[in-house]
Amino acid sequence: MADHSSHDPLAGIPFDRVPPSGRYGAAGEPGVTVSTTDTPFIALVVARNGFAASVAARLGRAFGVEVADRAGAAISAASTVVGTGPGRFLVLSTIEPDLEGTLRALLGAEAAVSEQSDASVAFNLTGEKVPDLLAKGALIDLDPRVFLPGHAATTVIAHIGVTLWRVHESGWRLLVARSFEASFTRFLVASGAEFGLALENGTAGRG
């Protein structure tokens, strides 16, 4: 292993491995906490032509939230519906193992449904410094006065495609393609070290 600066929070961690759980960077109360231990069931819903409004309404009724055909996140205790494009919705659930089947039964011929649970890693980011961290890689304005709870965006952060939304005042959620988990975690650690970053991961894929 080449010599690394002692200031490098990623010193000694192989590029192709997800950095291990632990504390990185500045000591004290962490400015950012990153967790991937929640592994929701995920499915993508794509409304067929002319059915976007109907699909949004059906999803809203079924999950007890207000869903519209726009880039927003409708959040309840167990489910989240996120708009990612016209007539396109990502549905996350912590309690529906057969989310795909549930959605097929709900939407019938109005939409195409595909199971995506293992496609993405869900990063939960909490803490006051999350916007400052994300600003280092984002192309869009994530200032907490502009990007409000319930707002969602599909964009790139650190050159990696993400769908992200603000869950509450100090909580953000980001979906990243699973093969980018190591790279994206490295970005979070490197960019969050100055604020102190607590990382909690280590769950294997659902397989």
Binding site: R70, A71, G85, P86, L139, I140, T154, T155, V156
Partner: peptide
Amino acid sequence: PYCGERDAHEF
């Protein structure tokens, strides 16, 4: 029209 104003690098 869907996402709002975005950097050309996304396109």
